[in-house]
Amino acid sequence: MQPIIEIRGLEKTYASGFQALKGVDLDIRRGEIFALLGPNGAGKTTLISIVCGIVRATAGSVTVDGHDIVRDWRAARSLIGLVPQELTTEAFESVWATVSFSRGLFGKPPNPALIERILKDLSLWDKKDTKVMALSGGMKRRVLIAKALSHEPRVLFLDEPTAGVDVELRRGMWEMIGRLRESGVTIILTTHYIEEAEEMADSIGVISGGRIILVEEKAALMEKLGKRLLTLHLQSPLDAIPAELAGYPLTLSDDGRELVYSFDSQHEHTGIAGLLRKLGDHGIDFTNLRTEESSLEEIFVSLVKERA
């Protein structure tokens, strides 16, 4: 199936001479949640802004559901909803007016029933007549989401959707995004909370220094790059790793009370059994053991560091 978004050779150099994007190629599959991760200034917002028509590309092309964003801009843009990173809201308008305005702006006839449903879904219904400026930050964020959803987009861009939103509300937002995905909307989100990407995304792209350095399905990424650690809590602390165990990638921590062994979970022979036998042979006893795998956050940090 044709990807819903196809980006080819996308470049952007701002008037200041800053090159925000240095040739981005990216396909986003229909109906998936795609998380775009990257450090500050990596080009996330520039990339989104070009697809949405807010920033002009210096070179390259973007199509949305087959519509070129320059030649066929009207068709491309009507498919896209954008929730910007900044809380840019009208001040004096009511929630109802500002959300209805967005629907009209995207060329859709009024549909009060739909707006009502969106506001109820986002727990904004009782605030519909409130002026936007009187709302809390979390509510303003939801107003922005309601505006983006008001014209029934097929692709939804969420630029840092849960920044400044409390934990409980963040959970609620994740659920809502999950429901949208079930209704067939493709969702592209950028986030600083790697936990968020780990929780929701189907695919993950990492952008750094204006280049996409990796695109992978989340599960595959976690497996491929994930390192596992085996930590043994020792009965009596060690000063140094015994010479007999030099062949294993071991480190001591917690003042010699813990022995940490890192291994590749993909490998057929993890070497755990051999290690434990050797420890027994040398009379090193342990009281407890645990294994852990690296989180997406650790993977991400090591990836970005590697390329920097």
């Binding site: 807010i54 910007p84 809201t89 702006l105």
Partner: peptide, 14 residues
């Protein structure tokens, strides 16, 4: 000034 212009710029409007 408020930044809400993003919406007009991203809308299918000439």
């Amino acid at each position: 000034y408020s930044g809400t212009i993003y919406e007009v710029l991203s809308a299918p409007i000439s």
